[in-house]
Design a protein around this nucleic acid. Structure first.
Lengths: 234, 234
DNA sequence: CTTGTTAATTAGACTTATCTAAGTTGGGGA
DNA sequence: TCCCCAACTTAGATAAGTCTAATTAACAAG
C-alpha cells in the first residue's frame, strides 16, 4: 500500500507545498493552484519535465491537475509533502546542532538527507534534539501527524519605517544570501528596528541589535518578521 | 575532473572491492579478478546488468575487464570504493553510537547514507566519534587517504576444537543473522572457546563468555576470530 | 471579435539502469 | 580429442526522468 516514492516525486511534492505556502501573498499561482513554470523554476528543470511529473502525480492521486490552470496537492500528496519537509527540517536542525554544520550549508545537505531517512532514524534524531518545533532558519517542523505551526509575520521589506520587529524566519534556499544575513545578524530571534526605507536605492536602513546596517530589498524580502510591541512569550 | 558518480556505480565498486577482500580465501574469483555472477548475486541484479555495468566501469577507467574472465578494480576505482566504504562504516558507527540504532539495522541504513554524505559531514562525524578505526561489526574503517587496517583472523567455522579465540569481526550483510549472533554473544571482542565440532550435524559447540551455545556452520563462517593465546593489546 | 504573446502541453529523443531471451565461450569430463 | 554445460555476453525491451522543438490554449489589448 505505502509504495516507496522516488526522490523526484518527493521533491515535486515538497516544492508544490512550499510554493503554495509562500504564495499566500500571491505570485506563481493560478486559481487551480501552483503554476507549472513556478515548479519548474524552483526545481531547476525545463517546463515539460514539470508537466510530465505533474501528470504523474495526478495519476498517483497525489495532486489534482487542471491542464493550463495549475496543480494542487491532494490530502494524500500533502501528507507526503509534510513528511518530506519534516525530514528536511529535522535534518537541518540535526546537522547544525549535533554535527556543527554551518547554517548556509545545512540546507543543501538536508536536501539529500530528506530522501534517505527512515522513520526510525527520524524519530531518534527528533528525540535527541528534544523534539524541536522549528529548524535553524525558523521554519516550523511539521509534527509526525502532519500538524504545522502556522507562524504569522510579514517580509521585512514591507515593514514601515520606525517599527520595531523581531526576526521569525528566513528563507533557506539561497546559501550566499544566508551567509550575508548571518553576517549582519538577521537570524531568527534578532531584534530589529526599521529606520528608513530608501525605495529609490532599493535599500532599507536597519538597526539590528546595536548595530546599524543597510540591506537590499531582495534580502529583506527573504526575512519574515513580526512586530515586537507586545513582549511575547519567547 | 571529479565527476559525480551515480549510486549504482558506487555500489558496484564497493561490491567488487568487498568481494575481492573476502575472496582471499578463494571463491567467486577468476584469475582476472571477480566473477560477474558474484557481483550480480551480491547486488541482487541479473547477470547481464552486472556485465553492462562492469563494461561501463572499464570505460570510466575504474576497473579492468577481461571478457569471460572477470573484473578487477583500477587504482582509481579502488580509491572510490574505499571512500564509499569509509562512508558506509562511519555511518554505521554513527548510527549505533550517536543515534542508538540497533546493530542489525545500522547496515541497511548506512547503505543509503553512504551515497549522500558530503566530505564535510563525513569529517564531522568522524571527529564526533573520535576517529574510530573500526565499525560496530569490527570491520576496519578506511582512513581519508585510503589506508585500511588489514586485520588477520579466520572464520570461526574453521577453528579446531579446543582452541580459545576472540571475535574480531562479523559480516554485516544479513540482519537476521546479526540478531542471532548478538543474542548468543558473538560480537567483536567476545571470548570464545571451541568445544567440539559436529560436522554430521553441521554445528559446533562453543563456550561464549561463560555461556555454552551450539551454533550452525553458516553463522560460524560469518564470524572472524583470532587466537587469543597472547593477550593482545586490546 | 480578431490578434499577439506568454504559458502550457505534446511529440519525439536521450540517458541510466534494469530485465528476459538468445547466442557465445571456456574448460572439464568421457 | 570432442562435447557439453555453466557462466558470460549480446540483443532488444522497459521504466524513469530529463531535454529541445513544435504545437496549442488562455487571455488581454485593440
Amino acid at each position: 500500500m505505502t509504495k516507496t516514492l522516488s526522490s523526484a516525486v518527493e521533491d515535486y511534492l515538497k516544492t508544490i507545498y512550499n510554493l503554495r505556502e509562500e504564495s499566500h501573498g500571491t505570485e506563481g499561482r493560478g486559481e487551480g493552484g501552483i503554476t507549472t513554470q513556478a515548479v519548474a523554476a524552483r526545481l531547476g528543470v525545463a517546463a515539460p519535465s514539470a508537466t510530465a511529473m505533474i501528470k504523474k502525480l495526478a495519476g498517483l492521486k497525489l495532486a489534482r491537475h487542471t491542464p493550463y490552470r495549475g496543480v494542487e496537492l491532494s490530502a494524500k500528496g500533502e501528507k507526503v509533502a509534510l513528511e518530506v519537509i519534516r525530514h528536511h527540517r529535522l535534518s537541518e536542525a540535526f546537522l547544525t546542532k549535533v554535527l556543527g554544520v554551518e547554517w548556509d550549508k545545512a540546507h543543501e545537505e538536508a536536501e539529500k538527507w530528506e530522501h534517505v531517512l527512515s522513520e526510525e532514524v527520524e524519530a531518534r534524531m527528533a528525540a535527541l534534539l528534544g523534539d524541536p518545533t522549528h529548524d535553524p532558519h525558523g521554519s516550523p517542523i511539521p509534527t509526525l501527524d502532519g500538524q504545522v505551526a502556522r507562524d504569522s509575520g510579514r517580509p521585512l521589506a514591507e515593514i514601515e519605517a520606525g517599527t520595531r520587529v523581531v526576526v521569525r524566519r528566513v528563507s533557506d534556499e539561497d546559501a550566499p544570501l544566508l551567509r550575508h544575513l548571518q553576517k549582519v545578524g538577521l537570524v531568527p530571534g534578532a531584534e530589529v528596528e526599521v529606520l528608513r526605507a530608501v525605495p529609490a536605492e532599493g535599500v532599507i536602513q536597519l538597526r539590528i541589535g546595536k548595530q546599524r546596517h543597510i540591506v537590499g530589498l531582495a534580502p529583506a524580502a527573504a526575512v519574515i518578521v513580526e512586530k515586537s510591541e507586545v513582549m511575547s512569550d519567547e
